[in-house]
Simulated scan of single mutants.
Amino acid sequence: MRRVTWLLSLALISGCAAESTATPAPAKGPDPRPRMEQIKADCMKQKGFKYVPYITPDRPDPDLSSYEAMKTYRQKYGFGVFGQFVFPKDPLTGSIESDPGKNDPNRAISAKLNDSQHEAYNEAKDGCYQKAAKEVLKKEAESMLDGATLLRGAREELEATEIDGDPELVALASDMGKCLVGKGRRVSSTQPTTLAKRGEELFWDEMEKLGDNPHEMPDITPEQARPHLDKEVKAALEDLECGKEFYTRYAPKKASISARVWAEYGPLLGAF
C-alpha cells in the first residue's frame, strides 16, 4: 500500500511494498464495513453533514508470499517505488492514479465546503469514525490515521517475535547481508525485518530527493522515471538473489502475519 495523499499511506502500511503480500485472507464472519459505514452516515447526519455509505473497492496486492512470486514482481517493479510513475494506471504499483477510492462520493461532498466548514466536517468525521470503530470492532481509534497506527503496532509486535525472533531467519539474514556487502552494497543492519525493507527504503529516499516537497509526490514523467526503475529492478533482483534462502523462509511468514493483522484491523482502514 502508497500515500493517501502521500503521508497517510506511509502511516497506513509504513511504505513497504517489498513487504506486501498476496491479498490477505478475509476475516471470519460477515464484512463489518457496511455496518460501520451506516453508523458513520447516521452519525454525520446527526451532526448536520451529508455522508454517503461507501466501501472503497479492494486494491489488488502483489503476491509476494514466496521467493518465486517476489522474483516475478521484482523483474517488473523492482522494490515497488519508481514503478508507480512508470506504470501509473497499474493498481499493483499503488499509484495515486490507480487509487480505488477515487470514486468515493464523499470526496466531492467535502470538496464543496469552505475552510471553516471543512474543519468542522473533519472533526465530525473523526468522531463518527471513532463511534463506528468502537461499536462494530470494539477498537479505540480516534481517526483513520490512529487506526493505521494500531494496525502497524500489531504487525510490528508479531514481526518482532515471529521474524526477528526466529533464529534461522537471523542466521539467513546475516548470510544475505554478507553477500550484499560483497557486491558493494551498504547494509546498516542484518535484523531480518530491517534487511527485508532496506532496498525499498533506499529507493524511496532517492525518489523523495527528486521532489521539491518531501510531503508530496515528485512531479516526474514515466520517461523520467524509467532510468530510476531500471536501476531499482537491478538492485531488487540482486537483493533477492543474495537473499534467496532468506526470502524463501521470510516471505510466507510475512504473508501469514499480514493476513492475520489485516483480518483484525483492516476494517479500520476501509473507513474514512
Rank of each mutant, 00 (worst) to 15 (best):
I109S: 00
S110H: 02
L113C: 06
L113E: 01
D115L: 10
S116K: 14
S116W: 05
Q117S: 13
Q117E: 15
H118A: 09
A120K: 13
Y121H: 09
Y121K: 04
E123N: 05
K125W: 06
K125S: 14
D126Y: 09
D126I: 04
G127T: 04
C128H: 02
A132W: 04
A132K: 07
A132L: 07
A133F: 00
K134N: 01
K134V: 00
K134P: 01
V136C: 09
L137V: 03
E140K: 04
A141N: 03
A141M: 05
E142W: 05
E142V: 12
S143N: 04
S143I: 03
S143Y: 02
D146Q: 02
A148L: 01
T149A: 09
T149E: 04
T149H: 03
L151F: 12
G153Y: 02
A154F: 05
E156I: 08
E156R: 09
E157L: 11
E157M: 10
L158C: 14
T161E: 15
T161S: 15
T161H: 12
E162C: 10
E162M: 13
D164T: 10
D164C: 13
G165Q: 10
G165M: 10
G165E: 08
E168Q: 15
V170Q: 12
A171K: 15
A173N: 14
S174M: 07
S174N: 13
M176Q: 14
M176F: 11
